[in-house]
Amino acid sequence: MSIPFLIIAAVILASAWAAVSLRNLVHCGLCAALSFLATGTLYLYLNAEFLGLVQLMVYVGAVAVLILFTVLLTRPATEAADAVPTKRPAFWKGALIAITVGGAVASCLAVYAAPKASTAPELSIQEIGRLLTASQQNVLALIIVALLMTTALIGALLLAAPAEEDTKGGGA
């Protein structure tokens, strides 16, 4: 365990803890963003450059902003006194979710045993690309994801498109 790793790990844990314990929801969101950022940094530190940068781009650039927007749009962000639910039903629900997700992750980890190799494999972006597009299985998955995304995009466009009566009626 090296010092940079310890620092990054401490930042991840501290910001994740702050993200669930702070009273102000916007602060929680920003701490979550910091946690994402630190996770990305951890990937970069472990020489998983592609993963790290994608983590930065997707989580810090998009997911964190999504979280913050959701917070802002759903409740007045300045009155966040009772933001964190403390009632027991909510607590049990949360615990249930935590156990489910944790169990899933743990079972996955149990199936894929930790790799023996101590050095990181040299994996260039070209190889990742080839892995994604060359093998039959991955191509299928890629195409399915792409189709799903396209469908979602078209759906979003349809939702955003003006409704028929609006264009005909000429205003309310």
Partner: peptide, 15 residues
């Protein structure tokens, strides 16, 4: 991954 790094870091300015 220079180009990716450029856009990934650029994305964090939004926050």
């Amino acid at each position: 991954l220079g180009v990716l790094l450029f856009f990934a870091i650029g994305a964090s300015t939004e926050l």
